[in-house]
Design a binder for these strands. Structure first.
Lengths: 190, 190
DNA sequence: CGCGGGTTTGATGATGCTCAAGCCCGGTGG
DNA sequence: CCACCGGGCTTGAGCATCATCAAACCCGCG
């Protein structure tokens, strides 16, 4: 039913067959089409989303009225707007499917109950947040350290398939570069 | 004994008087002098550090052999190198006291036991990590959105006392600006 | 076939860096 | 108590990186 999610959880904590139905009480599947939105600016983000299959991105509308891509999520990634989720404030972000995707949604309201019934799930989330923090620290370090050109090359090298999978302009805005400059970089590279 | 830490924990979870001694088994106090290091590049980071009093910074040596400040921690903040902590790999960072400071240290090895005895502590860490993630998302958004000048003004406005408390060159490197340019910005501001 | 979103190309210019020199000021030793 | 260091901050000139704007181009799709 949720092959990737279950496997992912079991990478970190125990979850036996009798506990699976308990988990299932709390999560649900969402099928989204390409370009469909899971969260819109102004809404209060209510869930944490896990990518079973496909690809999501999180973006916001910047001061120049452009879409600024903030984050991508491929298979086995969780994605949410933590600020909106925790403080119950309107989100500044959109979460959108780049491709047709299968998403697992965990309602924030239900999390506490879930953690009561399956305490290892709190441990699981704590552990993956530590990993995300480690990656985020690296991301910020890269932004400091690397020129835009190096950022692009580093990203291309780190996620070889990904550059093909998303439009250039999304990648550009994720890297904090203009689409024009990415175009020049690609030309230069070849 | 740890007035700030206890108060901070109790902001998020229950912790009664009989549980305090259990917590105390797992943490210890470290007094550090100005400029003293809690972690050095090449070491494996073993603990999570809580600032009871004083001020820490995390930095690394960049490709130009300069100290690049990565993060500050004031009172009531936790600081650690997650990558080194989790993967037990040598750290690329230094953690240093900017002022004489009183630090509470929680050994990573002991965390699991602590969470066994006081499950609410896992909940506490999970919750503060969510908050940190929210702040980090904002930090990255600011780096995207704002010019260096705006970054400086925003930081000055957000932490009015802080600009006085740390040397300009540390602040500059935290914001990803050269010390020279910060100097020009300050002049311009007045 | 024409439309439109996305990419490329060119010309121009601003932001913010580099390097070099001078300055300020607190600390240290004589 | 003074002199002199030296780290940090300031100032200036020149310049690289990368953004902006505008136009052309490409190509999948209705």
């Amino acid at each position: 039913m949720y092959p990737n999610l279950i496997k992912h959880i079991r990478n970190y904590v125990d979850l036996n067959e009798t506990e699976l139905p308990i988990l299932y009480k709390y999560i649900k599947t969402i099928q989204v089409a390409k370009k469909e939105l899971l969260l819109e600016e102004g809404q209060i983000c209510k869930s944490n989303y896990f990518v079973e299959k496909g690809c999501l991105r999180m973006y916001y509308i910047n001061s120049k009225a452009e879409e600024q891509t903030f984050q991508f999520a491929l298979e086995n990634w969780w994605m949410t707007d933590y600020k909106s989720l925790i403080d119950k404030t309107p989100s500044e972000y959109f979460i959108q499917a780049i491709e047709k995707a299968q998403i697992v949604s965990l309602d924030y309201q239900k999390q506490e109950q879930l953690f009561e019934e399956l305490p290892q799930m709190e441990r699981y989330f704590h552990m993956i947040m530590q990993r995300v923090s480690a990656l985020t620290q690296l991301r910020i370090k890269n932004i400091y350290e690397l020129s835009k050109e190096e950022l692009f090359l580093d990203f291309s090298a780190s996620f070889p398939g990904f550059v093909q999978r998303v439009p250039q302009y999304m990648l550009a805005s994720y890297l904090g570069i203009t689409a024009e400059y990415v175009s020049r970089l690609r030309k230069k590279k070849s």
